[in-house]
Amino acid sequence: MSVETVTQDVVEEAVQLKPKDFKGKVDPDWCPGCGDFGVLSCLQKACVELGLRPHEVLTVSGIGCSSNFPGYFNAYGMHTLHGRALAVATGAQMANHELTVVVTGGDGDGFGIGGNHFTHTARRNVDLTYLVMDNQIYGLTTGQISPTSCMEMKTKSTPFGSVESPINPITAAIMNGATFVARGFSGDAKHLTQIIQQAMQHKGFAFVDIFSPCVTFNHDNDYPFFKPRVKRLEDEDHDPGDWKIACEKAMVWGDTIYTGLFYQKKNVRTLGQLEPVLDEGGPLAFRPLGLNDGQGRRILDRMM
C-alpha cells in the first residue's frame, strides 16, 4: 500500500488541519439541541489533535439518529445495518489494520439489537474506538424505551412506565473484557474531547458511553438532569487500573454520576496483534491475491 510513501508535499500540508476539515458533505439533520452535535465536534477536534487525516479514518455506524454520523464527518465511512456496526468494523479493521476505526452509534443500536456484538467485540479486544451516543431512548422511531432507559420511564411503548431494569454499559463493557471503558457527557465538550482522544490512542477496544441527551423524546434525562450530577473521575483519586472500583463508581446513579475514564488495561494484545497472519506484509486488503506454487503444492500433497 502506498499510503506509507508520503511525499514531501503531503508532509507539508499534513500539519495544520482544523476541525472543520472533518466536516462532512451535509449538515446534520439532528434536532436543534441534540447531544450528538457535541459528540461530532469533539471527534473532529480529537482527530485534529491526533494529527489524523480524513483518509486514515474509517467511521462505521449502524442505524438510528446518531448512526447518521458518518455522513456528517469527513472521512471514509460506512453507514451499515441496525446493530451491526461493530461486526462490520471488525471485518474492516482486520482487512486493513492500519485504518483508524471509529464506530459511532446509539444505545438501542449498540446495546439492544447489537448487544451480542458489543459483548464479543469487547472480549476480542479489536483495535477500534466505540462511541455510543447514549440518550436512553429510541429517537428515530419517535420515542420508545431503549436498553438504557430508566425504570418507570414513560414513553410511547411504555405509557404506564417501564418495568424493565436498564443495563449499565460501563460495567457490561468491563465484564465483557473491554480494555478501555469511559463515560462522557456531550455537555462537557472539553472533557469529552480528551476522553475520545485517549480512547483513540488506546491500543485495543476502547468504549466510550456518552450522555448525549435527546431533547425531543427524553425529558427525564436531559441537560438539566445531567449538568448538576456529572462529576469527573479525574477530579477524584480514581485508579482506572482497578476494575472493581471502576464498577462501583459506574453503579453510582443519583446526585452524582461519574464521567471520565473508569477502567483501562494497557498493553493487552489486540486481536490483530495476536493474529500471526497480520505480522508481515501490510494490510491484508492490499496484499497480492491467489496462491503461490508452494502453497498450491502443499495443499495438493495433503490430498494425495
Binding site: V88, A89, T90, G91, Q93, N116, L284
Partner: peptide, 18 residues
C-alpha cells in the same frame, strides 16, 4: 458469535478490500 455478525464482518472486510 452468530451468522449475523459473520455476514456483516465479511462485508466489512470486503469493503476494506479483501
Amino acid at each position: 458469535e452468530d451468522e449475523i455478525a459473520v455476514a456483516n464482518m465479511a462485508i466489512g472486510a470486503a469493503h476494506a478490500g479483501c
